[in-house]
Amino acid sequence: MHIVVCTKQTPDSAAKLTVDEAGNVSWGDSPIIINPWDEYAVEEAILIKERFNGEPKVTVISMGPEEALEALKHAIAMGCDEGIRVWDEAFENSDTLATSYVLAKAIEKMGDVDLVLFGKSAIDSQTGQVPIEVARRLGFSPLTYVIKIVELDIEGRTITVERLLEQGRQVVKAPLPAVIGTVKGINEPRYPSFMGIRKATRAQYPVWTGADIGVEPDKAGAAGSGVRWERIFPPPVREGGAEIIEADTPEEAARILVDKLMAEKVI
């Protein structure tokens, strides 16, 4: 059994962001971390490995420049077996169409993959498109919004999951290989252990280039992308903070507030 986890690096979710005139985003000295959503995918992969007595191999991959190592290291420190960085200058400015193509090529190269796990979305670009696109490209069973793996039958090569949708939980059974998009609530990601951190520091992280995985140059990077980012800018700021409602009693405050909300036509 071979499980792959796809992850990427992001600025910390608490980072104060600034944008310059050219649209370059900066997060000051805030650290680069593993995309928080991806920790659920990493944890789930390790839980599956543990459930099957350590037999499944867990490989974590990230398409990205040097900084992507942060995400790989964190995943190895949590308990993944191997980390591979997929990168080539030609991959720069990839949208999700191109990113999913490159990741699918890397997974195809491995050849023996049964499950590919993803986070729900990247907290920076927050598109949430890469998991379904990789599934579609590889022809793997597309299982997104997974909040529970109900059954993983390796012999029968099927997986049953609960998916969290707007109206409730849908139970789906599908054949392996499958793509699993995880959501928060599927597990509680562990903190890396001291031993794990040591292992991650010492580990080798091979880099696979476009040539290594057979990427056609016009399908990756900007050339392979459908979407172009035009501008990045801060949202309009609202002046002044809240109008604080002052009153002698809660009843009076409530009446004043109701008047205001009716005037705003929101109730």
Partner: peptide
């Protein structure tokens, strides 16, 4: 919105 709504971006699909 991107970065959890801390920033906005504009995108096109040029071709």
């Amino acid at each position: 919105p991107i970065y959890a709504g801390k920033l906005l971006s504009t995108c096109t699909i040029p071709e």
